[in-house]
């Protein structure tokens, strides 16, 4: 589904991600974990296309998309629910959702997706005319997820969806992520909260200072990590 091959991503002259490769299979929940500042967000933005990859290639469904601008990638079925939600706070909930489907013309299907999102997050329906900036943190995360889903993605990337949320809300959000995956959407999840993420994913990457440190099945990766920690005393 997604194959990232040896990409470098810079901020101006400062490198943030170096020679990073990863791949995500169709239908999978893959997860990318790592400490703060490891380069996870940068990686997702490069996949989304809002940051350019200086080197390497990004392939999606067999097609190279390295040079394709972000807005066209949305049309190809890639969506990113960004870190810190980045909903449009001065727009209403309804307008935020409508913008998720910005590139789509299929009115009927849009309506169906909207209904589905309302069943996932009933609270959004009640808040439809409210300014997004006035929602609670959990509701904003739901809106960000809903906005991402409105683009009818095949690959949904989630950047720290649990950040700053109460534990109960996190559990809810993770239930929904599972539900989304069951509906056939491939998920690439970024988390600092390892345990939660590992539980629902079938493949894991661990990032450290701009590179992938280890990868594999979640339980194996966890084991290896624990051994490393024991050795290195981290």
């Amino acid at each position: 589904m997604l194959k990232v091959d040896g990409i470098d991503v810079h901020y101006g002259v400062i490198p943030a991600v170096r020679e990073l490769s990863l791949s995500v299979d169709k239908g999978q929940v893959a997860t990318l974990v790592g400490a703060n500042g490891a380069g996870k967000t940068t990686t997702l933005k490069a996949i989304m296309g809002t940051l350019p990859a200086k080197r390497g290639t990004i392939r999606y469904k067999g097609e190279e998309i390295t040079g394709v601008p972000a807005d066209r990638r949305v049309g190809m079925g890639i969506a990113l629910v960004p870190e810190g939600r980045q909903i449009f706070s001065r727009l209403t909930v309804g307008e935020n959702l409508a913008l998720g489907a910005y590139h789509r013309k299929d009115k009927e299907a849009i309506k169906k997706d909207r209904e589905w999102i309302y069943t996932l997050f009933p609270v959004l329906r009640e808040r439809i005319n409210q300014l997004a900036g006035t929602l609670s943190g959990g509701e904003q995360q739901m809106l960000a997820l809903g906005r991402g889903l409105m683009s009818h993605p095949e690959l949904l990337m989630l950047d720290e969806p649990s950040l700053g949320l109460a534990p109960i809300v996190v559990v809810d959000i993770y239930e929904v992520i599972k539900e989304i995956n069951r509906s056939g959407i491939t998920v690439l999840l970024v988390e600092q909260n390892i345990n939660m993420a590992m539980k629902i994913s079938s493949y894991a990457y661990i990032m450290e200072t701009g590179k992938i440190r280890t990868e594999g099945a979640p339980n194996e990766v966890m084991k290896r990590e624990n051994i490393m920690k024991a050795y290195l005393g981290e």
Partner: peptide, 16 residues
């Protein structure tokens, strides 16, 4: 309006 709030988020939702 969305773009004027955040260009980056606007691109993420597919706005050219």
């Amino acid at each position: 309006r969305a773009t004027s709030e955040s260009g980056e988020a606007a691109r993420m939702v597919g706005i050219n």
